[in-house]
Amino acid sequence: MDYLNGITLILNYIFIPGLTYGSQLALGALGITIVYSVLRFSNFAHGEFMSFGAMSSILLSWLFMSFEINIHPLPTAIMVLPIAVLLTITYCLIVDRLVFKFYRQQNSKSVINLIVSIGVMFFTGGLIRFIVGPGDRNFFDGERFFLKARTFKNITGLNEGLTLKTTQGVTILLSVFLVIVLFWFLNKTKTGKSMRAYSDNKELALLSGINPEKVVLITWIITGILACVAGTLYGLDKSYKPFTYLHLVLPIFSAAIVGGVGNPIGAIIGGFVIAFSELIITFAYKKIFFYFLPAYLVPEGLLQILSTDYKIAISFVILVIVLLIKPTGIYKGKIL
């Protein structure tokens, strides 16, 4: 019984949150990786694109909520997601036409594109704050839990509860769905293959008659979808504040690089490595020991490897370590 309690504890505080946060990071990292492998630059504006997607979902949710149109028990944001995705794609495409296209035609160095993306980041960040303001926005509605701690305790008779928040369930399911569709697209469709070909060898792709502008268009469409979904899910799960999305860029970059930039599978693995490391390193193990060891062996203190205050810093530490030991990442990515 004690062991089961201990396992429930791990599931509840590490496994489910890790899966959720990992999915959010993985979706973000996929966006960064895809832009990198096709357009050859690190897109610092990606966090703001996610924020833009979340903002679109919020505004649309409010609109539908005011008409009392919803899909209870699921949050309204999930219902309006397709429209929000369209808005985000449109924004990405407009930015590409007005900004990035020029540098693509000039064949600018990747570092110039990186600085350009910082300009886009500033502008988008300002635009978003101008539209919804800088404050905290909660747009969650619907049923809060798929599984309540009390229900779980009643069913199993354990001391420890297991909860599954609606946002966590939705995040995990939607991410799995999106990733499956993405991989099907990249590996099985003609357009997806042409994208991979373009990212592999641009000159030869041109010789083969692959239309570069079409590849770029598809790239931004995928980026828009990933950014909007990731941003909305993160906002639903943790509440939306424009400021936090700037800070999300770094863990996302860490995930992409740790997995191997330019490699979609790597981006997903990287997202989960970062998410689980953060949770495992900052978890207080006292209670676990309590369940697994006889009472006289349980040590004093919280038994935390690192204080929770350092949670986000862990992703940077992992990033630095990976860059030092294996800059190509876990899965061999393209070297920047």
């Binding site: 570092v111 770094l250 970059f253 940077f316 070297i335 920047l336």
Partner: peptide, 25 residues
């Protein structure tokens, strides 16, 4: 010493990450 061997994009991200670590500290 640890990051100058990296190419431009990596260096940018690495230095940004390290500066965040300093601030967290």
């Amino acid at each position: 010493k640890i990051s100058l061997g990296l190419r431009s994009d990596y260096l940018a991200i690495a230095t940004l990450g390290i500066s965040e670590i300093i601030i967290y500290f």
